[in-house]
Nucleic acid binder design. Structure first.
Lengths: 326, 326
DNA sequence: CTGTTAGCGCATTCAG
DNA sequence: CTGAATGCGCTAACAG
């Protein structure tokens, strides 16, 4: 069933059917009703594919992320999808994992499907080997990147001010008398580096010493590392982490060692995910404004798509959430 | 840039370009190389839209769920997306929320985009008012439903045996001497009803009494409800929950009331999500086999799409995960 | 306000 | 093995 069938049955031309379908006002009321009657009778569903051939748009955007199972990715992706849905767009979800080949394959698929835009959640294509394909694709498709940055034209960046957030966290903990800081991070991403930089700058501004450790993502990895540090006799009274999940691993290890939190050691996470409410005591953390990031990305995207001028990079402020571990 | 441009530059016909693009073997090697050289030179990207016009498929499936921020939905969706990606399909993600209008809108969009299939994660369209649109769409598009069931032709169901899982949980707790059961659930879904039924049957089989409460989703709601029950003097020594999140709310309330877990009261969650590792003590729970559910759905889907016979309903066994709260 | 016509970029006959 | 011709279902001029 296509518009020819509808047109025939309604005794009009396909152009008129098309006009009715697209809500054009250049149709007489009687004609419109006649067409709509047929449309409803057959429960007609227009083909977005055929429409896409002409308009060169499927009203679809690609959202590219590492792994939607991660709470940060899920939350941001959710708010993107919802905001886009209101604008009439659908969302193709891509979990690239860490394999560069896989990433390129996804980019290719999205390009073939002529998505109107690509939103990257997290610095998915940080690997410099992937610069070429990203730059190439950005020539045809606008790219919005959340917590990342490309210098290319037609790419737009939304960043959470993670650096300042870490800075403020250290300030706060110093004001509460903490002196020996430990920082644990699990991702060498744009965002990850911002956090680390904020931490380091604050530490040196206060003339303090600190210990910084990279660990593989995961609760147990964090726990094990802290245990190792304790066994080695490291003294610390504040632990900052780049993820809530990591912080909870730290917390559990401290509890196992009968170290009181927050009396002896303060612990802070990052993201203000639901995880931070699940542990006891509840985790102090930094709200990385997941919902706002998604909404802002879509706003920027919509401006780009409608030709409204847009800043190349927008910064969103993070917020300290103080609960029971500080 | 389209196949005409490529054809011209390679001095062949568009048919030949098309054959090369689609890996047809009816092309002489020399010709193929000639074409591929041009393809590479311009980094040619074929249009999936135009291809879709002919093949009537965009190699895309829709995955419809309530809210990807939920860990269950995220995990299942992830494994679906990954498995489909290997088969060359992309995934359109739809978070319908709870509004029926919204659900219908998504269905309509997916139909217009001519997705090859729709996978529902959870009984998204349980509301009987939505039966009509689902039945209508299933006439053209196969529907695979995870933890749900439709009787319509061209719909396929993958179910986790939640009922038996709850049954076994009660058995286990009874064997550990528990006698006064509390069950808390937060969703009136297919799966939710299966769980409740399993619970109730086990309770009556053991000739025990129990208290069952529906609460709105959320940590605090669970906590508040338990507090209320405690205040009312209810005696219980085992709490089963339909979600890990709920169970953690219960756990936190018990801890606040200085009730020892698992010494005085056993607590069990459901899903074996990462949340169950974040609380102290770690939550005993039921593994709802999220990854396997997703993979199985895609396997079924692939069979449907390739015309291989398929059972209308497949059941996956859940597993008890015993940790520190039982 | 309505109809006619011409593509969009590709896969697919059918000839050669 | 290769090419010419056709049509998928729709939108967008352009005429009337």
């Amino acid at each position: 069933m296509n518009i020819y069938d509808i047109a025939k049955e309604a005794s009009v031309s396909i152009a008129t059917v098309s006009r009715v379908l697209n809500g054009s006002n250049r149709v007489r009321d009687i004609t419109r009703q006649k067409v709509e009657a047929v449309l409803n009778k057959y429960n007609y569903i227009p083909s977005a594919i055929a429409r896409g051939m002409m308009t060169n748009s499927m009203k679809t955007i690609g959202i590219v992320t590492i792994d939607i199972r991660g709470l940060y990715y899920a939350n941001v992706s959710y708010s993107i999808e919802q905001a886009l849905s209101i604008l009439g767009y659908n969302t193709i979800l891509c979990n690239t994992g860490y394999d560069p080949e896989q990433k390129i394959r996804y980019l290719q698929m999205l390009a073939e499907k002529k998505v109107d835009s690509i939103i990257m959640v997290g610095s998915v294509f940080k690997d410099p080997r992937l610069n070429k394909p990203v730059e190439a694709i950005s020539k045809n498709i606008p790219i919005v990147i959340i917590n990342g940055f490309y210098g290319y034209p037609n790419t737009y960046s939304i960043q959470c001010d993670d650096k300042t957030a870490l800075d403020k966290s250290v300030d706060y903990l110093v004001s509460r008398g903490r002196k020996n800081f430990l920082y644990m991070y699990d991702a060498d991403t744009f965002s990850g580096n911002q956090k680390l930089q904020g931490f380091n700058e604050a530490i040196s501004r206060h003339g303090l010493k600190s210990d910084v450790h990279f660990i593989e993502p995961g609760l147990e990895n964090a726990s094990c590392k802290v245990q190792e540090l304790i066994n080695n006799g490291l003294c610390f009274d504040a632990v900052l982490c780049s993820e809530d999940f990591t912080a909870i691993g730290v917390l559990q290890c401290l509890q196992k060692n009968k170290i009181d939190v927050p009396e002896q050691v303060s612990v802070m996470g990052f993201n203000n995910s639901i995880l931070s409410l699940c542990c006891t005591p509840r985790l102090s953390t930094i709200d990385s404004m997941m919902e706002q990031m998604g909404k802002t990305a879509v706003k920027v995207l919509n401006n780009v798509l409608t030709g409204t001028p847009v800043e190349a990079a927008i910064k969103v402020e993070a917020r300290l959430i103080l609960r029971q571990t500080t």
